[in-house]
C-alpha cells in the first residue's frame, strides 16, 4: 500500500499535521493575511488560489517559518507526535525542521538553489546538514535524485546556472525531497515555465506526492494546476479565505461571488 493510501485510510487514527489558528500578518488593511484558520492532514495537498495581492504568498511565508505573523498559532505535529508551536520554538529548532521535516519550493529556482555550487552539492546539502558525511553516499543519492527528477546524471558536477528553467525547478524539487520531508510548501512551482515543461513537472510532482505520501501546501494562480494536484482548495481575497472545500466542487460549483469570477475568468484553449 502506498503511503498516501495509508494516510488516507487511517482516517480517525491520524491527526492533522498542521493546525493554523487565526493567523494574521497585515501590511495594510486587506493586505497580507487577515485571520486564517485551517488544518492540513497527512497525505493531503491543499491548494491556495486567488489573485495577486490576495495574501497567498504571505500566508505561505508565515506557515513555513519565513515570516513572523502578527498573531495566531501554527501547530505542527512532529514525527514522534510531539506538538510544536512554530513561532514558540527556538530559531535553531525551526531551522532544523526546515532542513529535515519540511521542504520549500520557491517560484524562482534561484531563490531555492545555491547557484554557485554544483547540482550534486545542491542535492547533498540537506543530507550533510543532518550529518551525512560519506562522499560515496552523497554522490549516489545525488545521482538517484537526478534520475528521479529526469535530469541526466552526467550533469551532476555542473552549476545550476547552466541548466534550463525547467531543469532548475526539478533540481530544486530534488534538493528538497532528498531528506524525505513530510510537509512541502510550494509557491507557484510551475510559474514562468512553458507549457510542455510544465506538463512534465506536474506529472512528476503528482507522482512524487502520491509515492512519498507528502503533505503539500501549494500556492498557485493556475486553476488547472490546482485541479490536478490538490485535494482541497482555499480561495483567498483581501487576506481572507472567502471559500474553501473540495477542489472539484469549488471549481465546478463555486458559491462565493469572487470564486465564481475567478473560475469564469479562465480561458480554455
Amino acid at each position: 500500500m502506498t503511503n498516501a493510501a495509508m494516510a488516507m485510510t487511517e482516517e480517525g487514527l491520524a491527526e492533522p499535521l498542521l493546525k493554523v489558528n487565526d493567523l494574521r500578518k497585515l501590511y495594510a488593511p486587506g493586505k497580507g493575511v487577515d485571520g486564517v484558520d485551517f488544518e492540513l492532514w497527512p497525505g493531503e495537498v491543499l491548494g491556495i488560489v486567488g489573485e495577486s495581492g490576495s495574501g497567498k504568498t504571505t500566508l505561505l511565508q508565515c506557515l513555513s517559518g519565513m515570516l513572523t505573523p502578527d498573531s495566531g498559532q501554527i501547530e505542527y505535529t512532529g514525527k514522534q507526535g510531539d506538538k510544536l508551536d512554530i513561532y514558540d520554538i527556538t530559531e535553531s529548532q525551526r531551522r532544523l525542521l526546515l532542513r529535515t521535516d519540511w521542504g520549500i519550493v520557491h517560484q524562482h529556482p534561484r531563490d531555492g538553489l545555491r547557484m554557485g555550487v554544483s547540482a550534486g552539492a545542491n542535492i547533498g546539502e540537506r543530507l550533510m546538514a543532518i550529518g551525512e558525511r560519506h562522499y560515496g553516499t552523497l554522490r549516489s543519492t545525488g545521482e538517484a535524485w537526478l534520475r528521479e527528477v529526469e535530469i541526466d546524471t552526467a550533469r551532476i558536477d555542473d552549476l545550476p546556472r547552466t541548466f534550463s528553467g525547467g531543469m532548475q525547478q526539478r533540481l530544486q524539487i530534488a534538493r528538497n525531497l532528498v531528506t524525505q520531508p513530510r510537509l512541502v510548501f510550494m509557491d507557484e512551482p510551475t510559474g514562468g515555465l512553458d507549457v510542455s515543461v510544465q506538463a512534465r513537472l506536474l506529472d512528476m510532482l503528482r507522482n512524487l506526492v502520491v509515492d512519498l505520501g507528502l503533505s503539500v501546501v501549494l500556492v498557485t494562480h493556475d486553476l488547472a494546476v490546482a485541479r490536478l494536484l490538490s485535494h482541497r482548495l482555499m480561495v483567498m481575497r483581501g487576506g481572507k479565505v472567502v471559500e474553501q472545500g473540495l477542489t472539484d466542487q469549488i471549481l465546478d460549483d463555486p458559491q462565493h461571488p469572487y470564486s465564481q469570477l475567478l473560475v469564469s475568468s479562465v480561458l480554455t484553449p
Binding site: M8, T9, E11, W41, E44, H231, R232, G245, L246
Partner: peptide, 10 residues
Amino acid sequence: TPRQILNIRR
C-alpha cells in the same frame, strides 16, 4: 468534510 468525501469516493 472534504476528507470524508474523498475517502467515500475512493
